[in-house]
């Protein structure tokens, strides 16, 4: 049996007096779509930030495919196969769609700076190979027509799609998405939901999805973890979660 793509164990994160995470553990299995839900300020983003290395938890650990990465830098954790999209977007707005997606390939490329200076041919060959991979993602996300548009000129729905494309370009072994649907209309949500399902099914990449839209979560998730005040208050399949009294209380109470 291979180790789970992602395991967070007993993570505790405090900001001064605020406990953002209190002894939180989650495990994501192969090809699984795990949703994380919870009221505002429950600690969802904090959990992703701890996982991706933005914050170091005061207690607990993060493992990627069995490898302990707790306390490593963000870029080191990315190189261990973790990709994420942000609440809002963190795209390179002045760059085109293709350029944004190619930046996702950076860590998979090998040429060094001396080669870049002297060996234009060698470097361009590598560049072409990775460009092909980028174009495959562009086809997959159906954004061929806008590939040369600067990202800053695109609407929010398309931008989130580029954001996903850039993360996929990293060929991650786990993908974290923080409220990708927030601010989208229902058509855009449907499109993105379809792509997220494809990521899990066709690309076999396990996904951790933080999302407020319950309809989306119940449709997409294999399993749901519910956070409230930094604690896991429930965990289970969508059916189980819908009936869970603690969840109903946290949301209505």
């Amino acid at each position: 049996m291979t180790a789970a793509p992602l395991a967070v164990r007993n993570a505790t994160l405090k900001f001064g007096g605020v406990t953002a995470l209190d002894d939180v553990s989650i495990t994501v299995n192969d090809d699984e779509l795990l949703a994380i839900i919870g009221p505002n300020g429950a600690g969802k983003t904090s959990l992703l930030n701890v996982t991706a290395g933005f914050y170091r938890p005061q207690k607990g650990s993060v493992e990627l495919s069995g490898k302990d990465v707790t306390g490593q830098r963000v870029d080191q954790i990315a190189r261990h196969g973790l990709a994420r999209t942000f609440q809002g977007t963190h795209l390179f707005a002045g760059q085109t769609v293709v350029e944004n997606i190619m930046i996702g390939r950076h860590m998979l490329m090998k040429s060094n700076v001396v080669q870049a200076f002297f060996q234009y041919g060698t470097v361009m060959r590598e560049e072409s190979e990775h460009r092909e991979a980028a174009e495959e993602i562009i086809d997959f996300l159906e954004i061929e027509a806008i590939r040369n548009r600067p990202v800053g000129t695109l609407g929010y729905g398309l931008r989130k799609r580029v954001d996903l494309g850039r993360a996929l370009a990293q060929e991650p072994s786990i993908l974290l998405m923080d409220e990708p649907m927030a601010g989208m209309n229902s058509e855009e949500k449907e499109d993105l939901a379809r792509f997220i399902l494809d990521v899990r099914e066709a690309r076999k990449i396990p996904v951790v999805l933080v999302e407020h839209d319950m309809g989306v979560v119940m449709d997409l998730a294999d399993r749901i973890v519910v956070l409230d005040f930094g604690r896991v208050i429930a965990e289970g399949t969508p059916e189980e979660i819908q009936k869970d009294p603690a969840v109903i209380k946290a949301y209505l109470g």
Binding site: R73, R84, F92, A93, Q95, E99, Q115, A116, R166
Partner: peptide
């Protein structure tokens, strides 16, 4: 090359650059 892209990435958004 990829270095040029990395430079631009760091210039435009170093948080996103890190996650790349």
């Amino acid at each position: 090359s990829r270095f040029g892209r990395a430079f631009v990435a760091v210039r435009d958004d170093d948080v996103a650059a890190g996650i790349m």
